[in-house]
Design a protein around this nucleic acid. Structure first.
Lengths: 359, 359
DNA sequence: CCACCAATGGTAAACGATTACCATTATGTC
DNA sequence: GACATAATGGTAATCGTTTACCATTGGTGG
């Protein structure tokens, strides 16, 4: 084959793209060994400047594209992480996902997204991607570990690099107390949300929770109780509606709330989508928000402030959550010691128009 | 090593999970060859029932996990597709993504998501994943092909399996007229949206467009013009505001519209997020929708009907778009002939509360 | 000028599957 | 029972990288 560099052939070199050229062919073209090609490309300071230039030039000329699969196989690093998410289209999640993806990309990793719809089987499929070497780590958005109980129970099974986003995963078979996670202080946030409503004079405050299996929802409810008790108001369980962090739950829960004998004057929704469904349902039943009933959301999703009425809500630092998750996970993958596994980020009460004083 | 099946060792077999067991070790354990192991697992009817059972049992016992990277390298099938998306968190996109991911998963493919923010360089990065064998095909959500012009201009470069979602990709260097795509009839949709407003008596209809570089936005505008001309109403370019399919564009464009001498009585937004920004801005400036100004959206995103006022909009079949994209792409990857590259799905005008008659 | 060491680059063995090719065994036909 | 044919399963090559190990080269100090 004609040597690119010696250039004994004076015709302008034909630029070949995407030809099936591997390190072997490239090495031949550049007149060096495959080892040098590989080193020049992925370990540049292991070779001399001359060699580097020679290889890079040849690679450029022929449009060489290294086969990442082969590299991954050899190095046992796939360069992927997998995000296991109950619902990709959920607005809060998709915000986190976005920054997650960006932060991963900055460090050369791609993100595989698994939308599970909360289905255990699908969680397992995605969890298994790291066992089958398709991914190097996992970001879990739910409160369940994506592995078979049988596996979790086995001493031989060591958890792969994994970070919890906004949730506390737990398992009967495994101690998860040291699992890294990035979240806000849900108890405090629940308390502050409730305090805001109490300060406005509300005493009968209904709650539409998130998935009640999930620690985040429980913690927010905990905060709610704390605030009530602090204010000397008895907790009434009939005011609590179990939701699941969806818009639809906001709708159906609100309908139930409206059926109660004594209507609450405020509703605390544990996510903005539920609040949206809640407000729409209230309006449909002839109630004005906030005049008749105040509604408070959670998350501060992208368009919470554009809704009508604009939504009073607890803002979560979406962008930072995603970024931190990625950073911690990639550090784990790189074998770095994680000094602070539990990252608690600040939240913020955003007071807008969906809540108002009761008098 | 002890043979699982002969079971001469009567102690209960220790179940080993995730040990570093490959086909080689598994073959030894099962007492067969690596070829048989591979066949039993991924080509079951190439082996006898006895053999299959023997291998599957052993695999189960030791928790064997095939290394998908190695398999991919050998078969040159990564089992991934990559979706190149300007904005993952956009509500319309995330809906498509969700069904896309599900349909792909059903056929054993995973989806890598690339959020590009419209940045050319990032598009190229993701487009390149198929060259580097990390993905077998591409779903493109934008109107640009994710490859260097240099590549596109080269005859040697054949486009990988690729499907356009809701857009018409084009390139100065490549004929894209046969590129498979899944979309609605944007011209017709634009026309119908405008006709709806005309029927309500509106004559001054402003438009907040999508990215004006994109064929979808141009086509919708085309439909708008057709409807106007049909109704004998002259087209006035000052009513057109160039947006980019975002909420923020809805806000800023609406502000500009409100500055005009002659205020329109209706605004046609080319996506629901823009409509949301539009309505919020109108409200902020003291205008009631639809009493003062009607607003019509596009997409029928998940919560369009829960907004206040609920949004009149053109519904796109989100779920089907995603599913079809995945199906067509996977068929292409499987080497099937695509008989109908251009899939035009039906849209539907959803009349709700954000538009009303002018008198 | 020699011994020594660092820098450089080559050879060949991995990584862990799949599969072409072949040898063996089972099945069926006459 | 002999033979053709189908079914089965083994051996070893292969996919395209990276890298351990080694050989060579060049530079430095004595």
């Amino acid at each position: 084959m004609e040597n690119v560099l010696t250039g004994t052939n004076k015709k302008p070199l034909r630029v070949l793209f995407m030809s099936n050229i591997g390190v072997k062919e490239l090495a031949e073209i550049a007149g060096v060994s495959t080892a040098s090609v590989s080193r020049a490309l992925s370990n540049p300071n292991r070779v001399s400047k001359r060699m580097r230039k020679k290889v890079l030039l040849a690679a450029e000329q022929v449009g060489y594209q290294p086969n990442r699969l082969a590299a991954s196989l050899r190095t046992s690093r796939s360069g992927n992480i997998v995000a296991i998410i109950p619902d990709i289209s959920d607005t809060f999640n998709s915000g986190v996902i976005q920054s997650l993806e960006r932060a991963a990309a900055e460090r050369g990793y791609s993100v595989l997204f698994g939308d599970t719809q909360g289905i255990r089987e699908r969680e397992l499929v995605y969890g298994n991607m790291v066992n089958s070497k398709q991914a190097d780590g996992i970001i879990v958005f739910s409160h369940r570990l994506p592995f078979e109980d049988e596996l979790l129970a086995s001493d031989d099974f060591v958890l792969p690099p994994m970070v919890n986003s906004c949730e506390y995963a737990h398992s009967a078979f495994r101690d998860t107390s040291l699992l890294p996670l990035v979240t806000i202080d849900n108890v405090k946030a629940g308390r502050e949300a409730t305090e805001h409503l109490l300060e406005l004079g509300h005493k009968d405050i209904a709650v539409i929770t998130g998935d009640i299996e999930s620690p985040s929802a429980r913690q927010r409810l905990e905060g709610y109780k704390e605030a009530l008790s602090q204010a000397g108001i008895p907790f009434r369980s009939e005011l609590i509606q179990a939701g699941d962090y969806t818009l639809e739950a906001g709708v159906t829960s609100t309908k139930k709330i409206l059926l109660a004998k004594k209507r609450p004057s405020a509703i605390f929704c544990m996510c903005d989508e539920s609040a949206l469904g809640c407000i729409a349902t209230l309006r449909e039943h002839g109630f004005d928000v906030p005049r008749d009933i105040s509604v408070l959301g959670f998350d501060d999703i992208r368009f919470a402030k554009y809704l009508s009425p604009s939504l009073t809500t607890i803002a979560q630092p979406v962008e930072e959550i995603g970024r931190r998750c990625a950073e911690i996970l990639l550090d784990m993958i790189d074998g770095k010691e994680i000094e602070e596994p539990q990252t608690i980020l600040p939240h913020k009460l955003m007071v807008r128009d969906s809540t108002s004083a009761i008098w």
